[in-house]
Amino acid sequence: MPASKTGGSLKSVFEPAKAEAADAVMQPDQSQPAGRNRRAGGRGVRVSGYLPAEIDEALRDEVIRRTVAEHRSVSFNDVLCSILSDWLRRKEAHENC
């Protein structure tokens, strides 16, 4: 199914100043997806399936390490998302080589 069911020509609907201000706010926050997920109550992040005990323990250690190092609240999801993002970046870099 298409994301949007609308089409047609673009004509000015909004006042330019208001549209510009709103546009800045409505940009997806791609730099900190984990932070966004935490603010949204963890929505969109699902961890399902079995995590081996040593990985689970390592992830929880990393949560504590980052919380202390960064002086802010870091969730399990934040760490997991950040590790997965790094993995994807490395994978893409490897494929481009």
């Binding site: 069911k5 047609g8 020509s9 673009l10 609907v13 546009d23």
Partner: peptide, 18 residues
């Protein structure tokens, strides 16, 4: 309808108003 960006929103409203 997806109006998550200003251009998407503007396009949707402009199209519906036509």
């Amino acid at each position: 309808i997806d109006g998550r960006t200003v251009p998407q929103l503007e396009r949707a409203i402009a199209s519906a108003r036509q």
